[in-house]
Simulated scan of single mutants.
Amino acid sequence: MKYCKYCGKGLHTASSFCPYCMKSQIAKQSAAMQQKKSKNIRYRFLEAGLLLLLCATIAVLCFLVWGKEPAETSTPSDSAIDTVKSSAATWTEPAQSTTAAATVSVDAAASSATDFMENANAAETAAASEAEASALSIGDYITAGKTRSQIQGYGGYTDIGGTILTIESITDQTITFSIVQYSDSGYAADTVSAKQITAQWVKNTAAFEFCDDTLDGKGYGTLSYENGTIHIETRSNTNHPTKLVLNEDLVGT
């Protein structure tokens, strides 16, 4: 057992929402913030890649400008020509090496810029996947550790019974769902359900009231979602008690 950090009431160890003071026990980060973070990462990678490419371009220009020989201003003598030819022969190979090195530098800078862009795209894709994974989706969520057939009592299982919760619609503000609790006796008569419950959906948490399928039993509860798991707790109304009393974790199918 753990206790609410706001009102001090006792809670289930897996509870992320207090039904007494209606406050969440876990601070969450919205998908919008995740997307904003991924965009910032992408822009930083892009800026770094462009800066590296610009530096390489400047280096090449410097090699080309400083490597030029000064223009001749007068007619050289034969000896001067021989000297120039000898010097040209001596420096041809280093000049070619310098040009090749500059070309390699440009290619390396372009490759680095490409790598930066690929890493930025990968980071954005990973952030988008993380945001998508953290979102509750329409479909069935069943008692953790069991199969649908086991919950419904098919296939010769010994540990039968459990809960199937179906998310029917969900928006930024509301969630609509139905609950069916199958008895460990395996008899259909002991199965109880509540259909089309609609509740306010705030920070992946909802507090709700319901009437079970007996049309007389009533109750209230809380539903919270985190890391692919729904935790649901329900309590019975004192004046009109319901058989649909839950405190368990449900996972998507």
Rank of each mutant, 00 (worst) to 15 (best):
T174E: 12
I175V: 07
T176M: 03
T176H: 01
S178G: 00
S178H: 07
I179M: 10
V180P: 00
Q181N: 15
Y182G: 00
Y182A: 01
D184P: 00
D184V: 03
S185H: 02
Y187L: 10
A189M: 02
A194M: 05
K195L: 09
Q196N: 09
A199M: 09
V202T: 12
K203F: 05
N204L: 04
N204C: 03
N204V: 00
T205R: 15
A206R: 02
A207I: 01
E209H: 09
E209Y: 06
C211P: 02
D213I: 01
T214P: 00
L215S: 12
G217D: 08
K218D: 14
G219I: 04
Y220V: 06
T222F: 08
L223G: 10
L223Q: 15
L223R: 09
S224D: 15
S224I: 00
S224R: 01
Y225A: 08
E226T: 13
E226Y: 13
N227W: 01
G228S: 09
T229M: 12
I230P: 08
H231I: 01
H231F: 10
E233N: 06
E233V: 07
T234N: 08
R235K: 07
N237S: 13
T238H: 10
T238R: 10
N239S: 08
N239G: 02
H240R: 07
V245Y: 11
N247W: 08
